[in-house]
């Protein structure tokens, strides 16, 4: 502040600020405007008028996709929390060098192609896939289980893809945890379960909140996972938006789908700003 010249300061704030205004906020305003437009047979394929038709169509026909998305994202977030907490806890209690390696291994998958990692599950879950072959060969089942193109495979895909985003903030919280508080509770006679529920869990709440938001918000609007692993019963908002835009070439309808999704995610997004800001500042 005192050290950096006023001109430099203006540049450092101004450049990213203007960029994000133009390429993030302004586009959202345009989506909002076009969500009230009318689809037309022209280039670009819409006519700017003021109509609520897109939103009316949304309410009458597409609510299922929203409830599907919310339910699947919530389920996946809960499962991520369960699995992620166990892993983050175990990593936080691992000594020095190993801990760094384990953290590295958590991050490595999300540096690799997301699309290809999701696609890999098709070969595992399909009727002639790895799991069904193993189960058939061992005689546990008579006919292949329907593991693919349903709620199960979509949830599995979501948990698999977003697990690292849950583990990292949880690990951050748990590794900062003051060990002496845990010892004090144990010394005063608390059983391990009590120590966990009364000391460790409350102290890791910021990490839990950050992790859940990092998983839940993108999961609600996920496209690749419901598209590759989902079936007709698991239509999600992200896929519906994609279909309106690419298959039906109805841009105003796609814009309305997007605006409804933004509205749905407003509260989680504001929460995310609070919790992630705090994590980032720490």
């Amino acid at each position: 502040m005192t050290g950096i010249g006023a001109g430099l300061r203006r540049f450092l704030i101004g450049l990213p600020f203007i960029w994000l205004m133009v390429f993030f906020l302004l586009p959202l305003a345009i989506v909002a405007a076009i969500s009230f437009a009318e689809s037309a047979d022209s280039i670009p394929p819409f006519k700017l008028i003021w109509t609520m038709a897109n939103y009316r169509a949304l309410c009458s026909g597409c609510l299922g996709a929203y409830t599907n998305s919310l339910a699947l994202a919530a389920l996946a977030t809960a499962l991520c929390l369960l699995v992620g907490y166990a892993i983050a806890f175990a990593i936080a209690r691992t000594p020095g060098v190993w801990r760094q390696l384990l953290l590295f291994l958590v991050m490595l998958p999300f540096w690799t192609s997301f699309l290809i990692r999701v696609y890999a599950w098709i070969a595992i879950l399909q009727p002639s896939g790895l799991i069904n072959r193993l189960l058939l060969a061992s005689g546990v089942i008579e006919a292949p289980l329907p593991l693919l193109y349903n709620g199960f495979s979509v949830t599995l895909g979501l948990v698999y893809s977003y697990l690292p985003f849950m583990i990292l903030p949880l690990y951050g919280s748990l590794s900062r945890l003051d060990e002496s508080l845990v010892e004090a509770a144990a010394d005063l006679g608390a059983r391990p379960r009590r120590v966990f529920l009364d000391v460790i869990l409350p102290l890791s709440l910021p990490g839990i909140a950050a992790g859940c938001l990092l998983v839940f918000i993108p999961a609600v609007g996920e496209f690749v996972i419901p598209d590759l692993l989902g079936g007709p019963g698991t239509l999600m908002v992200g896929k519906m938006l994609w279909q309106e835009f690419f298959d039906n070439v109805d841009w105003p309808a796609a814009a309305a789908v997007a605006m409804a999704l933004v509205a749905l995610l407003t509260v989680p997004l504001l929460l995310a700003q609070r919790f992630l800001e705090r994590e980032g500042a720490a």
Partner: peptide
């Protein structure tokens, strides 16, 4: 965190 479909659609419309 914002879903990619929203980022993509909004930038295209811009």
């Amino acid at each position: 965190v914002v879903p990619e479909v929203i980022l993509g659609l909004s930038l295209l419309l811009l």
